[in-house]
Lab assay of single mutants.
Amino acid sequence: EPSQADLDALLSAVRDNRLSIEQAVTLLTPSSGGGSGGGSMDAKEILTRFKDGGLDRAAAQALLAGRTPA
Rank of each mutant, 00 (worst) to 15 (best):
residue 14 V to K: 00
residue 28 L to W: 03
residue 8 D to E: 10
residue 58 A to V: 13
residue 22 E to R: 03
residue 58 A to Y: 09
residue 54 G to A: 15
residue 63 L to C: 04
residue 16 D to E: 06
residue 10 L to Q: 00
residue 7 L to V: 09
residue 30 P to D: 04
residue 52 D to H: 08
residue 37 G to A: 07
residue 35 G to Q: 14
residue 61 Q to W: 06
residue 51 K to C: 04
residue 34 G to M: 12
residue 4 Q to F: 15
residue 5 A to D: 15
residue 12 S to H: 04
residue 46 I to F: 02
residue 3 S to W: 15
residue 10 L to S: 00
residue 70 A to R: 01
residue 45 E to Q: 10
residue 31 S to T: 14
residue 28 L to D: 01
residue 39 G to F: 11
residue 11 L to T: 01
residue 66 G to F: 10
residue 12 S to Y: 04
residue 28 L to V: 05
residue 62 A to I: 10
residue 13 A to R: 05
residue 67 R to D: 07
residue 55 L to I: 14
residue 65 A to H: 05
residue 56 D to F: 02
residue 24 A to I: 02
residue 23 Q to S: 09
residue 38 G to L: 12
residue 12 S to M: 13
residue 16 D to T: 06
residue 11 L to P: 00
residue 2 P to S: 13
residue 20 S to A: 04
residue 44 K to F: 14
residue 30 P to L: 11
residue 42 D to K: 08
residue 45 E to C: 08
residue 47 L to G: 00
residue 43 A to Y: 14
residue 46 I to P: 00
residue 50 F to N: 00
residue 41 M to Q: 09
residue 49 R to H: 07
residue 11 L to A: 00
residue 4 Q to A: 13
residue 44 K to V: 09
residue 66 G to V: 08
residue 55 L to W: 02
residue 21 I to V: 06
residue 24 A to N: 00
residue 47 L to T: 00
residue 37 G to I: 14
residue 31 S to I: 13
residue 69 P to I: 11
residue 12 S to F: 04
residue 7 L to Y: 04
residue 60 A to V: 08
residue 33 G to K: 03
residue 67 R to G: 06
residue 47 L to H: 00
residue 16 D to I: 02
residue 43 A to T: 12
residue 52 D to L: 10
residue 14 V to C: 02
residue 39 G to A: 14
residue 67 R to P: 06
residue 1 E to K: 09
residue 5 A to H: 08
residue 14 V to A: 01
residue 61 Q to K: 14
residue 68 T to H: 15
residue 62 A to M: 08
residue 64 L to E: 01
residue 19 L to I: 14
residue 47 L to R: 00
residue 32 S to P: 07
residue 34 G to F: 07
residue 19 L to A: 02
residue 57 R to T: 07
residue 17 N to L: 06
residue 17 N to R: 05
residue 14 V to H: 01
residue 31 S to Q: 11
residue 62 A to N: 06
residue 36 S to D: 13
residue 11 L to K: 00
residue 3 S to L: 13
residue 40 S to V: 10
residue 26 T to P: 03
residue 47 L to Y: 01
residue 58 A to P: 06
residue 36 S to G: 11
residue 44 K to A: 07
residue 24 A to H: 00
residue 24 A to Y: 02
residue 22 E to P: 05
residue 28 L to A: 03
residue 38 G to P: 13
residue 17 N to D: 08
residue 16 D to Q: 07
residue 25 V to D: 02
residue 52 D to A: 09
residue 1 E to T: 13
residue 7 L to Q: 02
residue 61 Q to N: 10
residue 70 A to Y: 03
residue 26 T to F: 10
residue 17 N to C: 06
residue 16 D to C: 04
residue 41 M to S: 09
residue 69 P to W: 03
residue 4 Q to V: 12
residue 44 K to Y: 13
residue 29 T to Y: 14
residue 28 L to C: 05
residue 10 L to Y: 04
residue 51 K to L: 09
residue 40 S to Q: 12
residue 56 D to L: 07
residue 39 G to K: 03
residue 5 A to R: 09
residue 4 Q to P: 12
residue 43 A to R: 06
residue 50 F to G: 00
residue 31 S to G: 07
residue 54 G to D: 14
residue 38 G to Y: 09
residue 2 P to V: 15
residue 11 L to W: 04
residue 38 G to R: 05
residue 62 A to V: 10
residue 15 R to E: 15
residue 35 G to C: 14
residue 56 D to P: 06
residue 12 S to A: 06
residue 32 S to G: 09
residue 9 A to V: 07
residue 39 G to M: 13
residue 11 L to F: 05
residue 5 A to K: 14
residue 17 N to G: 14
residue 61 Q to S: 10
residue 33 G to R: 02
residue 69 P to E: 12
residue 40 S to G: 14
residue 68 T to P: 12
residue 70 A to P: 09
residue 35 G to R: 01
residue 6 D to H: 13
residue 49 R to P: 01
residue 20 S to K: 03
residue 30 P to I: 11
residue 36 S to E: 14
residue 58 A to R: 07
residue 20 S to L: 03
residue 21 I to R: 00
residue 28 L to H: 02
residue 3 S to N: 09
residue 6 D to M: 14
residue 29 T to A: 08
residue 28 L to G: 01
residue 16 D to S: 07
residue 44 K to D: 05
residue 13 A to S: 05
residue 8 D to Q: 09
residue 34 G to P: 14
residue 9 A to S: 08
residue 52 D to T: 07
residue 45 E to V: 05
residue 69 P to C: 06
residue 49 R to K: 14
residue 51 K to T: 03
residue 38 G to K: 08
residue 58 A to S: 09
residue 65 A to G: 13
residue 49 R to S: 08
residue 64 L to D: 01
residue 29 T to F: 14
residue 40 S to Y: 13
residue 15 R to N: 06
residue 3 S to R: 04
residue 55 L to T: 02
residue 24 A to P: 00
residue 62 A to R: 06
residue 57 R to N: 06
residue 15 R to S: 11
residue 25 V to H: 03
residue 55 L to G: 01
residue 26 T to E: 14
residue 57 R to P: 05
residue 50 F to E: 01
residue 47 L to I: 04
residue 16 D to A: 06
residue 57 R to L: 10
residue 65 A to W: 07
residue 48 T to K: 14
residue 9 A to L: 10
residue 23 Q to N: 07
residue 45 E to T: 05
residue 51 K to M: 05
residue 46 I to K: 00
residue 10 L to V: 11
residue 35 G to D: 08
residue 58 A to N: 10
residue 59 A to T: 14
residue 17 N to H: 06
residue 51 K to Q: 04
residue 70 A to W: 02
residue 47 L to A: 00
residue 24 A to L: 03
residue 11 L to V: 02
residue 26 T to H: 15
residue 53 G to D: 02
residue 39 G to T: 13
residue 32 S to A: 14
residue 9 A to C: 14
residue 64 L to K: 01
residue 9 A to N: 11
residue 22 E to H: 06
residue 46 I to M: 02
residue 25 V to Y: 05
residue 34 G to C: 13
residue 8 D to Y: 07
residue 65 A to R: 10
residue 60 A to Q: 00
residue 36 S to Q: 11
residue 63 L to K: 03
residue 69 P to V: 08
residue 8 D to M: 10
residue 58 A to E: 14
residue 64 L to P: 00
residue 38 G to A: 13
residue 13 A to D: 07
residue 49 R to L: 15
residue 68 T to G: 14
residue 30 P to W: 10
residue 59 A to E: 10
residue 9 A to W: 14
residue 48 T to E: 11
residue 60 A to D: 00
residue 63 L to T: 02
residue 52 D to Q: 14
residue 9 A to Q: 08
residue 70 A to G: 11
residue 62 A to Q: 12
residue 53 G to H: 04
residue 49 R to A: 12
residue 23 Q to F: 06
residue 11 L to G: 01
residue 56 D to W: 02
residue 25 V to G: 02
residue 57 R to M: 13
residue 66 G to K: 13
residue 50 F to W: 14
residue 21 I to A: 02
residue 64 L to Q: 01
residue 50 F to I: 01
residue 34 G to I: 15
residue 55 L to R: 01
residue 47 L to E: 01
residue 39 G to R: 01
residue 43 A to M: 12
residue 12 S to K: 06
residue 65 A to L: 11
residue 38 G to Q: 10
residue 63 L to E: 03
residue 35 G to S: 15
residue 61 Q to G: 05
residue 10 L to R: 00
residue 65 A to N: 09
residue 11 L to R: 00
residue 69 P to D: 08
residue 54 G to E: 14
residue 58 A to W: 11
residue 5 A to G: 10
residue 34 G to L: 15
residue 14 V to I: 11
residue 64 L to F: 03
residue 10 L to P: 00
residue 29 T to V: 13
residue 39 G to D: 12
residue 12 S to D: 15
residue 32 S to C: 12
residue 27 L to K: 05
residue 24 A to M: 03
residue 3 S to G: 15
residue 50 F to V: 02
residue 34 G to H: 12
residue 12 S to P: 01
residue 37 G to N: 13
residue 13 A to G: 05
residue 66 G to T: 08
residue 39 G to W: 12
residue 41 M to P: 10
residue 60 A to L: 02
residue 1 E to G: 09
residue 54 G to W: 09
residue 64 L to A: 01
residue 21 I to H: 00
residue 69 P to L: 13
residue 14 V to G: 00
residue 40 S to L: 13
residue 2 P to Q: 14
residue 61 Q to Y: 11
residue 70 A to F: 03
residue 68 T to M: 12
residue 1 E to P: 10
residue 70 A to C: 10
residue 65 A to D: 06
residue 32 S to N: 12
residue 67 R to K: 10
residue 31 S to A: 11
residue 34 G to S: 11
residue 20 S to E: 03
residue 9 A to K: 09
residue 60 A to I: 03
residue 68 T to A: 15
residue 41 M to R: 04
residue 65 A to E: 12
residue 45 E to K: 05
residue 63 L to W: 04
residue 21 I to Q: 00
residue 54 G to M: 08
residue 49 R to C: 11
residue 69 P to A: 06
residue 4 Q to G: 15
residue 43 A to P: 10
residue 6 D to S: 14
residue 62 A to T: 10
residue 70 A to I: 09
residue 41 M to H: 06
residue 70 A to E: 11
residue 2 P to K: 06
residue 32 S to L: 10
residue 11 L to S: 01
residue 48 T to I: 10
residue 45 E to L: 04
residue 66 G to W: 07
residue 45 E to Y: 05
residue 62 A to F: 06
residue 69 P to Q: 12
residue 2 P to C: 13
residue 2 P to H: 14
residue 31 S to C: 14
residue 57 R to Q: 15
residue 29 T to C: 14
residue 12 S to V: 09
residue 12 S to C: 09
residue 14 V to N: 00
residue 24 A to W: 02
residue 51 K to Y: 06
residue 22 E to G: 05
residue 7 L to W: 06
residue 5 A to W: 15
residue 66 G to H: 12
residue 16 D to F: 04
residue 69 P to H: 09
residue 30 P to M: 06
residue 19 L to S: 02
residue 7 L to D: 02
residue 68 T to Y: 14
residue 45 E to P: 02
residue 5 A to C: 15
residue 66 G to E: 07
residue 64 L to S: 01
residue 19 L to M: 08
residue 3 S to E: 10
residue 7 L to R: 03
residue 48 T to M: 07
residue 25 V to A: 07
residue 15 R to W: 14
residue 45 E to M: 06
residue 46 I to W: 02
residue 27 L to V: 03
residue 65 A to I: 08
residue 39 G to E: 08
residue 44 K to E: 06
residue 50 F to C: 01
residue 10 L to E: 00
residue 46 I to G: 00
residue 52 D to M: 09
residue 36 S to Y: 14
residue 33 G to W: 10
residue 15 R to Q: 11
residue 55 L to P: 00
residue 70 A to Q: 09
residue 60 A to T: 07
residue 67 R to V: 10
residue 23 Q to R: 05
residue 35 G to T: 13
residue 54 G to Y: 15
residue 13 A to V: 02
residue 42 D to I: 06
residue 57 R to G: 04
residue 43 A to D: 04
residue 9 A to F: 08
residue 8 D to G: 08
residue 52 D to K: 06
residue 7 L to C: 04
residue 23 Q to I: 07
residue 20 S to R: 03
residue 12 S to W: 06
residue 2 P to Y: 15
residue 50 F to R: 00
residue 44 K to I: 10
residue 53 G to V: 01
residue 26 T to K: 14
residue 42 D to G: 07
residue 26 T to Y: 09
residue 68 T to E: 10
residue 10 L to T: 03
residue 20 S to T: 12
residue 8 D to H: 08
residue 11 L to C: 02
residue 9 A to Y: 12
residue 42 D to A: 08
residue 13 A to W: 06
residue 38 G to N: 15
residue 4 Q to H: 15
residue 52 D to G: 07
residue 2 P to D: 12
residue 62 A to P: 01
residue 3 S to K: 05
residue 62 A to D: 08
residue 12 S to I: 10
residue 52 D to P: 00
residue 56 D to Y: 02
residue 7 L to A: 02
